[in-house]
């Protein structure tokens, strides 16, 4: 019998897997799940005696090396000193264009979202950008974004060492094929099926006939996640860590992987 796993633990463990082989990962503001995934990757690499992973968690004091203000992240990224970063968006389309500005006709977008932050730069220069958006609905995953904060791919003459590597949602994991300019379904999270994910996605994507399930974390990974990672996370994201802990406590006695 497998232990009960929280759906967000699947996301965190998947992010940790997507970060394999990185040396420096940066995580932007308001990103508790990516931060947890990066902390889990660091803990796993440390346990296995692998190369140390450096994390720069924006908003953290303990897990942040920057001393040159908010420009340093971008300077670092421009020199390939950052291997992976996370971006999201109010809209993401099938060519991995992201929109963080707003829906409808710009400039009077409705709704207006906060803005592009560093996406229009980091998406170009960070080699492994992981698109992360928990909400998986047709209003988020659209055929074409209303505003391109940052494009998924660039014309061949444009300096573009970075770009999207994967898209992780609350329902599934996709990879991105730069040549084909499209996503391919890698796996479905527990409780999801292909028809449901297709219905929730406003763009077409490549997929196999029977996509595999997203791997659930094993006991060793869960122990690290529920212990060390939540401890580390609570410095920057106390509310999120506390909520995870209380939901994990409530998992006892609940059927595994219920969604």
């Amino acid at each position: 019998m497998t232990a009960a796993v929280h759906p967000r633990e699947i996301l965190i463990a998947t992010i940790a897997r997507l970060l394999e082989g990185t040396r420096h990962v940066a995580v932007g503001a308001s990103s508790p799940i990516p931060a947890a995934g990066a902390m889990l990757r660091r803990a796993l690499q440390e346990e296995s005696g692998g190369a140390p992973l450096r994390l720069s968690i924006l908003g953290s004091v303990e897990h942040n090396f920057f001393t040159n203000g908010s420009a340093e992240l971008f300077d670092c990224a421009g020199q390939r000193r950052i291997d992976a970063f996370f971006l999201g968006g109010g809209q993401v389309d099938g060519q991995a264009n992201i929109n963080l500005v707003g829906a409808g006709d710009y400039p009077r977008s409705a709704p207006r979202w906060p803005g592009s932050f560093g996406s229009a730069y980091l998406y170009f220069v960070v080699p492994r950008v992981i698109l992360f958006r928990e909400e998986h609905t047709p209003r988020v995953f659209v055929d074409k974004v209303d505003f391109v904060s940052a494009p998924g791919v660039s014309s061949p003459h444009i300096h573009r060492p970075g770009g999207p590597a994967a898209l992780l949602t609350g329902k599934a994991l996709f990879s991105f094929d730069k040549a084909r300019r499209g996503f391919a379904l890698e796996s479905l999270h527990p409780g999801q099926d292909l028809a449901g994910v297709k219905a929730a996605t406003g763009f077409a994507f490549a997929h196999g006939e029977a996509p595999p399930a997203t791997a659930a974390p094993g006991a060793r990974v869960l122990a690290l996640l529920r212990g060390r990672v939540l401890d580390e996370l609570s410095e920057t994201y106390p509310d999120f860590a506390a909520q995870m802990r209380s939901e994990l406590a409530a998992l006892d006695g609940v059927p595994a992987l219920a969604s």
């Binding site: 908010s70 420009a71 971008f74 421009g78 400039p107 803005g115 730069y121 170009f124 940052a150 660039s154």
Partner: peptide, 30 residues
């Protein structure tokens, strides 16, 4: 609407008393 490093680039240009600062990214965006 800008992107973070563009604001930093613009301020950096002013700091140096030069008219502009080049930066990567941003091409083919809205």
């Amino acid at each position: 609407d800008a992107t973070c490093p563009a604001i930093h680039a613009g301020l950096m240009a002013a700091q140096k008393g030069i008219p502009y600062m080049p930066m990567r990214g941003v091409l083919e965006t809205d």
